[in-house]
Design a protein around this nucleic acid. Sequence first.
DNA 1: CTGATCCATCGCAATTTAACGATAATAACA
DNA 2: TGTTATTATCGTTAAATTGCGATGGATCAG
Lengths: 109, 109
Amino acid sequence: MKNSNCDDVCCPAPSPKTRSLNGDERFAQLAQALGHPARIAIIRLLKERKTCICGEIVEVLPLAQSTVSQHLKVLKEAGWIQGEVDGPRVCYCLDPDTFKRFRSLLDTL
Amino acid sequence: MKNSNCDDVCCPAPSPKTRSLNGDERFAQLAQALGHPARIAIIRLLKERKTCICGEIVEVLPLAQSTVSQHLKVLKEAGWIQGEVDGPRVCYCLDPDTFKRFRSLLDTL
DNA sequence: CTGATCCATCGCAATTTAACGATAATAACA
DNA sequence: TGTTATTATCGTTAAATTGCGATGGATCAG
């Protein structure tokens, strides 16, 4: 198993949507992305298996592949996770900075 | 200004919806309630003015009264805030336990 | 090159959310 | 009592979300 270059390449790359948000909107975006059980399950999974995964997520969750892909997209656009292409598959991993940011935003409440 | 008995009466009273949620669903509910800029603004306002408010929120936010009331309902059902009737008005205040809970849930991620 | 695999995206249906005005309910006040 | 003020709720509309199957584009194995 030759995966993966994810550890090397995972670097913050905020999506265009994310870039233009002011503080509270950014906070809301992060919270909303967290606001679905499936997406929380995905984050937990990525936390457990420290390295990146993808198709495995589909196997674990009771959801169709397209649905999981959609949730991954939401998480990625919000900045919770990052995806890196690794041959035919895509390898996801958490963005620890986002956790820090979210926690500090929570403290400003 | 004789308000208010809010400090006396503010005690946790989870709504029926909240009671039957497992861990991740509860987490998701809390996050989702946070997932709107107007609701974050409401929480900030309630944090600033330590005591409860209500109609003032309507004055501050650029939203109709019914819309604000709806957001307050979401926050209340999720457990972020509590409302107490004070004469003809309703006085809202934060639930600090929910903040603690949310933070610890965030740490389980 | 061909076929298989992996994944994102499209299109669709059903549900939920957000916002508003209008209405009702309740409590204070004249 | 009747009036005013405050807030929740109803009904509606528009938009976003959720979920799925189907399609299509890459990439790798043979």
